[in-house]
Design a protein around this nucleic acid. Structure first.
Length: 341
DNA sequence: AAGCTGTGCAACCGCGAACGT
DNA sequence: AACGTTCGCGGTTGCACAGCT
């Protein structure tokens, strides 16, 4: 690839700019504009490459540059934009008048990123770190000590993420406790299951599905999940209304294998596969996927809790089997499940 | 006072996109 | 369409400074 030599050319100065050089550059641009950056150094009488001149101007000498500490509003804006845009510093900078992409990038790398890491959040995804169980104590401590956080805006952001963390943790704990099970021997789904391999749907939709399953439990009209319309087209409408749905999804083929007895919901009905992969993903791997989880569709903690409660009730009153009630009971009794709320 | 370590930030580098011929 | 040049972006480096031992 024919890359331009730029500063590699011999004789061109590198390193920090002197006040004299700054003055020359500013005077020239004020008088003539920058025009071609490549040609500028000669015209301005500078022994620098055009690239160096452009950087010096855009990051330091431009008259509209705001210097000094970032305000809380700016900090919050950066956090919010970064959670959506990622490391698109120029795009983020366009929302912060007077701030350069370089300045924002430095501020992120030296301040915000570290703070998020310390709080147990992945600075790239803005979600709880992948080792969710090991970071839970930190999150709990954070909840108890949140009043000690000195930066207001960061606190708000952290609390929002923390709520998501608790929700994710519970859901992961559910998956952890109820790993995928092999289909029952009397598996009518294998021959007539209309939703086996229905295509793929995202984790977002999986969570929606979990929610809807909980609410469907008591519906007499639904005796089997196989009656649900889970076609790709029906899911499309859901997807369209979901924030962040434009972002790449972790593809999760629905591996529903057996209809639950008597309209009950079975957490283990969901086997999560990586895109194109053959082996299931563990809850930990699932949590570590880079798929952003939109806060707006996360099931509220109370909803998960009531879901688990209702599942427990349902299983104790049905032909689910001997093991199920104790499993639900174990979950509900587990202090960890309650503590993380 | 000297040396070490950590931090913040300006500047550089390399790549790919955009543009011009 | 193909090629060369320029520009802009994001990642990284290196230096100055502050704080600590």
């Amino acid at each position: 690839m024919g890359r331009s030599p730029c500063c590699d050319e011999t004789g061109l100065k590198k390193g920090p700019w002197t006040p004299e050089e700054d003055q020359k550059l500013v005077k020239h641009i004020q008088k003539h504009g920058h025009g071609s950056w490549r040609a500028l150094p000669k015209l301005a009488g500078l022994n620098r490459c055009g690239k160096s001149c452009r950087l010096r101007w855009t990051n330091y000498l431009r008259p509209d540059i705001k210097r000094g500490k970032f305000s809380e509003e700016e900090e919050q804006t950066i956090l919010n934009l970064h959670s959506v845009l990622g490391n698109k510093w120029s795009a983020i900078a366009s929302h912060l008048p007077g701030r350069t992409d370089n300045e924002i990038k430095n501020f992120w790398n030296t301040h915000l990123k570290k703070k998020l890491i310390q709080m147990g959040f992945d600075p790239m995804t803005h979600r709880p770190r992948t080792d969710i169980f090991s970071s839970l104590p930190n999150l709990i401590a954070l909840a108890n000590l949140k009043e000690l956080i000195d930066h207001h805006s960061l606190e708000e952001h952290a609390l929002r993420l923390q709520t998501e963390a608790a929700q994710m943790a519970k859901l992961q704990y559910l998956q952890y406790l109820f790993p995928p099970q092999p289909p029952a021997s009397s598996n009518i789904a294998t021959s007539s299951n209309q939703i086996n391999n229905i295509g793929t749907f995202s984790d977002i939709e999986a969570f929606n599905l979990l929610n809807s399953l909980a609410s469907l439990k008591d519906s007499p009209s639904v005796s089997s999940l196989s009656q649900l319309d889970l076609s790709a087209s029906s899911l499309q409408g859901i997807n369209d209304s979901i924030p962040f749905s434009h972002l790449p999804d972790l593809q999760i083929p629905c591996n529903y294998q057996a209809p639950p007895p008597k309209g009950m919901v079975q957490a283990s009905e969901f086997t999560v596969f990586s895109q194109g992969g053959n082996s299931p993903i563990s809850p930990f791997q699932f949590a570590s996927s880079s798929t952003p989880f939109p806060p707006s569709v996360a099931p509220p903690v109370t909803q998960i809790s009531s879901m688990v409660n209702s599942l427990g009730d349902a299983s104790s009153n049905s032909s689910y089997g001997e093991e199920a009630p104790s499993v639900w009971h174990d979950l509900l009794e587990d202090p960890m499940f309650h503590d993380i709320a």
